[in-house]
Design a protein around this nucleic acid. Structure first.
Lengths: 216, 216
DNA sequence: TTGTCTATTGACCAATTGTTCAATGTATGT
DNA sequence: ACATACATTGAACAATTGGTCAATAGACAA
């Protein structure tokens, strides 16, 4: 007995959110049409009515994952930091904290990343998402290099942005697999040390604002 | 008609190598008992005779993957570098090159990493492998901090080692998904710039040996 | 030879999967 | 009221999966 109808886009959204929860909990392997349908309290036939192939559902979910994973939103307090290096480091720390607190999303991303080696569509999407994420950090990196060219020789803005991404994702990778043994705070401090603080002249102001902007 | 026998350990090895090739090509999803058996030219029943459960096969393969992925072997030329920072950077560059040239193994590792969030046995193995890999870099990191404490304030050996791991794996992650768009050489140069070269005093000797040790 | 042990095979099973489709309900227009 | 369009359901199907098991072939000892 077919149930009630629902507006077009609502159903797709409903199915996608169900797919997101399922994939978050059981991985892409566990993302079956029936599991999604059950989660959304729909028949599995209906899921395949709105997404003609399972592949389409998987790809649509990828879009959603990438949108929420690679959205770099820096708080105003960070942007107001006077020193370019402080801004750069603060943005990195903020992202490290954010992603470390969303392990499921992180895991899902890496599953898609691995999938990308066999599915060209997935690869393209992940690739461009990583590129734009890097681009977001390049703005900060350019400021750093402009005001601090002496310390970083041979460092390009694009390269420095890529390093920022590595530091963030490397932190998540190591922290998630071993939450007890991996010392996140030591990692953050070391990352900051390697990239360099704002120096002695801003010691009194910078770090304090930083601590307020990034709750531990 | 049952075929010929084979020495005990030979069969397990044979099956494991077959499993490795299958998983390398088609991922852990594609690692089916029948696919492995077919690859090893055996019956699928025999695979389950030597590995009572599929889980056991997957875990045994993980050991093999971790052994070959996280084995840090630094060339003698790197160890002979006079400057601690040069050794550190050279070891990192060497690993970046090595792992970037083995994308399949890299992908397989991340699949296991993601699997670790649901399988505690896998998680434990991956976790300890990452720990020992970090420990290998900590030796270099300690030397760096001992000779260069001024530049790296608040940086701990463990933290610096973790950053090395992040730089290496971050490079592989970004380079593999977008081989064309990601500038590896710029990344390497930037990483070296951030960590700092040996400075002006060793410019004549260090870098040249480095270039010889790490073929581009 | 005879017998025992075990490696090996392939048939078989139950469960799960993606996908199709006829049937049926709901909404909307005329 | 009637018809048309379409969202929705669940049965059904073929393919694939991990796993079991009886039958059998090889190796080796007595």
């Amino acid at each position: 007995m077919p149930g009630q109808k629902a507006p077009e886009e609502t159903r797709r959204e409903q199915i996608l959110t169900a797919a997101h929860t399922v994939a978050s909990r059981h991985g892409i392997d566990g993302l079956t049409v029936r599991a999604v349908a059950s989660r959304a309290k729909l028949s599995h036939g209906l899921v395949l009515f709105h997404f003609k192939r399972k592949d389409e559902l998987v790809t649509a979910l990828l879009d959603r994952v990438l949108e929420t994973t690679f959205l770099l939103t820096v708080s105003e307090q960070v942007l107001e930091l006077p020193d370019a290096r402080d801004r750069f480091v603060a943005a990195i720390r903020q992202e490290m904290d954010r992603l470390s607190q969303e392990p499921r999303r992180m895991r899902l991303f890496f599953e898609y990343w691995a999938l990308g080696s066999r599915h060209s569509r997935v690869r393209t999407k992940v690739s461009t998402a990583l590129s734009s994420y890097r681009a977001a950090f390049r703005t900060f990196a350019e400021d750093v290099l402009r005001t601090d060219a002496s310390r970083f020789s041979d460092v390009t803005p694009e390269g420095l942005a890529a390093i920022a991404v590595s530091l963030i994702y490397g932190c998540a990778v190591q922290a998630m697999i071993d939450p007890a043994g991996f010392d996140i705070s030591a990692y953050r401090a070391s990352a900051q040390g390697v990239l360099g603080h704002s120096g002695t002249r801003a010691t009194k102001r910078g770090p304090r604002v930083l601590a307020a902007a990034i709750p531990a």
